[in-house]
Design a protein around this nucleic acid. Structure first.
Lengths: 152, 152
DNA sequence: TGGATTATCATGGAACTTTATGGGCGTCAA
DNA sequence: TTGACGCCCATAAAGTTCCATGATAATCCA
């Protein structure tokens, strides 16, 4: 499974091109398709990203009645309808569409944040606001719990 | 699972390179990726470290609705966004980024402390302050508890 | 068992590779 | 033809590998 983590800030040139962080590229390497999948995240005003493998898992999950009730299903459909494919070129860059840049308020720079099996793309300002708001006290890697191994 | 313990002090050269203690390298040997994962620990002003296996466990846990509510998830995302990957070279060294050195106040030397399934990296001064403050009386290996074995 | 030999480790420097970034050039379609 | 787009090239900075050395620790053996 692709694992995305860390924060990277890259320039967006006048063509709308931006380098996908090398570590993220490595995470999606070997995937069936050399690119990423992006969708607006309306909750936070950023862009969500993932690879094909993750999307396939999500799609499979839709068939599980325990995961989705009617309301959640309708919402999931809306989200899937917003997903777009962005190829990554030979130099490791993709072209962020004007539509998505406008949505996320991205102009000169884009901030990539890895959050596990997916990642997000932010404008620097919004990223800062989001990070400093919410009053989250510093968590730490050492304090994060892992699922207790189930003895079967 | 990787087990980290003991304290080691190593030099940081002008490129920011520092040897990972051989015992720690042995602990992560066999991991899918020859490197360590580091994240700032804002509570104590040091750097938390772990291996890939541990991070993957954490990431898998994120899909478990019983482990994370919305608030805990937001916090977990913040932590993951701070995690960075540091490859360990053939000589057993990694390059501590300027950002992380600044955060932890590390200049010439770095102190590695193993604390179980993760480890920490300190500036010598902060390490000293932290150890001597807090009034923690000496615990002992003999007094430490272990989980009761479950009969299955 | 004392001393010699062999690993392993931490450290320094140099050479090499990758990454992020900017620009150019042809193609296709509106 | 004027963008939008894909593709290729150039380059500086950063990251990574390679080689050398002294110090310490482990091993061997007569």
């Amino acid at each position: 499974m692709a694992a995305f983590f860390g924060t990277y800030t890259n320039k967006v040139d006048k063509k709308g091109r931006v380098s996908v962080p090398a570590r993220f590229r490595a995470a999606i390497a070997g995937s069936a398709y050399p690119g990423v999948l992006l969708a607006p995240n309306e909750e936070v005003g950023a862009i969500d990203g993932s690879d094909f493998e993750r999307l396939n898992q999500v799609i499979e999950g839709l068939d599980d009645p325990e995961l989705y009730d009617d309301e959640a299903m309708a919402q999931a459909h809306e989200t899937l309808a917003m997903v777009q494919e962005f190829p990554v070129d030979g130099d490791g860059r993709m072209v962020l569409s004007q539509e998505f840049r406008d949505f996320a308020g991205i102009t000169e720079e884009a901030v990539f944040t890895g959050i596990g099996s997916t990642f997000q793309i932010w404008s620097p300002d919004r990223r800062n606001d989001h990070r400093t708001s919410g009053g989250r006290t510093g968590s730490s890697l050492a304090s994060m719990r892992v699922p207790r191994r189930k003895d079967v």
